[in-house]
Design a protein around this nucleic acid. Structure first.
Length: 419
RNA sequence: GUGGGGGUAGCUCAGUCGGUUAGAGCUCCAGGUUGUGGCCCUGGUGGCCGCGGGUUCGAUUCCCGUCCCUCACCCCA
């Protein structure tokens, strides 16, 4: 036998038994987004590499070591998208979706690719849904995005969603904070891990979310980003919190929450759940007022979020499988060779009339067909054999009650739908 | 990239202190019902014991290597 293939490391097949859970998530997403006024956007699976290096940041983990990048036939560097905000903004600018300066609200459900070591809740191809509101600099828009994300988590049944909130201020504030942080950490550099020491040069803010106990202890006395916000940022942040309070959405302030993508400014947030493993972030987002300008557009404020669908599925109960709502489903059984075509025609007829119906294509015994009907959770079987063909009737059996009766072909549909 | 755990039937797993035909439960198939399911009974299909090498009279078992899966670090959804 020839060698068999397996899915590539970090990728997963979604099999029929699981796909209904995915469909539920997708439906909930579509319904919510439409109700909240967001329009769906679908972008290609890959983009020019430079889109990501420029937006996400050269020093970010994503760009520095996680991208699937290759040269195409014209020697253009191509990258499978590792995140979705940049491609969506690229499309926004390319198609002038600003509608002359008004607000544009977009959402997506999509697959993304990052070359990381897989573990629970982390794959190399994974899926996110998310939303971006482009054009409003005001805190009301931050609040709406956060409320949307949070409501979706709740609606999907996530156990104990915890909203964490922070503000990392404008670019200028962040620069001042960065300097202060470096100044504070420099004397401790001997006690820092190698990566943190390196980050001291490249991206000091990232040291803040370390899990290393020793580093956390050092950071206790470090300068706080919130002390570096200017009045505008502070007012914005306060307004966001007031908005969330008004909506009754509780949150935890976490001024170590900086997030790994370079384009964020001001509001950042994350929704976590303790129902997951070490990878406990279900959803992350924030404001990115500088991104569109960096991508060649005019300065345009924007805020958005993205949520990991695999992780959400891990964080919601396996499903109360008991929701077997007694819906009509028919299995048509062949008894005797001559009935084959009648069975097929009858099945097709039922299907054409909107009734889920199936029949045997393995030439199995009546008993085996019955078992199959049962396995498929059919509510009724229809038996067609030579006797039935001769009399123009079929046998209809209700599998729940076990009652069986003879029904003329012409009245089959009426009989089934009247039950 | 680093560390822990694991690869035996389609699935979940047991087992062999190195020895002849490698096991269970579930699944699947058939029979018990000459054209009738779920429960039950009986039988059956199905395994290069991840792969390669070494030690040995003999390896699924011991040793080495390797691949894969998994969890964690890192980071993130």
């Amino acid at each position: 036998m020839a060698e068999k293939f397996n899915a590539v490391k970090g990728t997963k097949d979604i099999l029929p038994d699981d796909s209904s859970r995915w469909q539920t998530l997708e439906q909930t997403t579509h319904e919510f987004m439409n109700r909240w006024g967001y329009g769906e956007i679908r972008t290609p699976a890959f983009e020019r590499t430079e889109l990501f290096t420029r937006s996400v940041g050269e020093e970010s983990d994503i760009v520095s070591k996680q991208m699937y990048t290759f040269l195409d036939q014209s020697e253009t560097s191509i990258t499978l998208k590792p995140e979705l905000t940049a491609p969506v903004m690229r499309a926004y600018l390319e198609h002038n979706l600003d509608r002359g300066g008004a607000l544009t609200k977009l959402y997506y459900i999509d697959a993304l690719f990052r070359q990381e070591r897989p573990q629970k809740g982390r794959l190399r191809q994974f899926h996110q849904f998310g939303a971006e509101a482009v054009g409003s600099p005001y805190p009301e828009q931050d609040v709406e995005i956060i409320a949307l994300a949070f409501s979706l988590m709740e609606a999907m049944g996530v156990a104990n969603p915890l909203l964490q909130l922070n503000s990392i201020g404008s670019r200028e504030c962040r620069q001042r904070f960065r300097n202060a942080l470096v100044e504070f950490l420099a004397p401790h550099s001997g006690d820092l891990s190698e990566t943190s020491r390196q980050r001291l040069e490249t991206n000091p803010l990232r040291i803040l979310d370390t899990k290393d106990e020793g580093e956390r202890a050092i950071l206790k006395d470090a300068p706080r980003i919130l002390d570096f916000l200017d009045d505008t940022d502070r007012e914005h942040y306060e307004a966001v919190k007031v908005g969330l309070d008004t909506l009754g959405i509780s949150y935890e302030q976490n001024d170590l929450l900086v997030r790994g993508l370079d384009y964020y400014s001001q509001t950042t947030f994350e929704i976590t759940s303790d129902a997951l493993g070490a990878q406990n972030a279900l959803c992350g987002g924030g404001r990115y007022d500088d991104l569109l300008e960096e991508l060649g557009g005019k300065p345009t404020p924007a805020v958005g979020f993205a949520a990991g669908m695999e992780r959400i599925l891990l964080a919601i109960p396996e499903e109360s499988a008991a929701d077997s709502v007694e819906t009509l489903k028919v299995f048509v059984i062949t008894a005797g060779e001559k009935a084959g075509t009648a069975v097929m025609k009858t099945t097709m007829n039922l299907r054409a009339n909107g009734i889920p119906a199936d029949f045997d294509t393995l030439n199995r015994s009546v008993k085996a067909q019955m078992r199959e009907a049962n396995r498929q959770d059919a509510t009724h079987i229809v038996v067609i054999g030579e006797e039935e063909l001769a009399s123009g009737t079929c046998q209809v059996k209700d599998l729940a009650t076990g009652k069986q009766q003879s029904v003329p072909f012409k009245e089959l549909f009426k009989h089934l739908t009247s039950v």
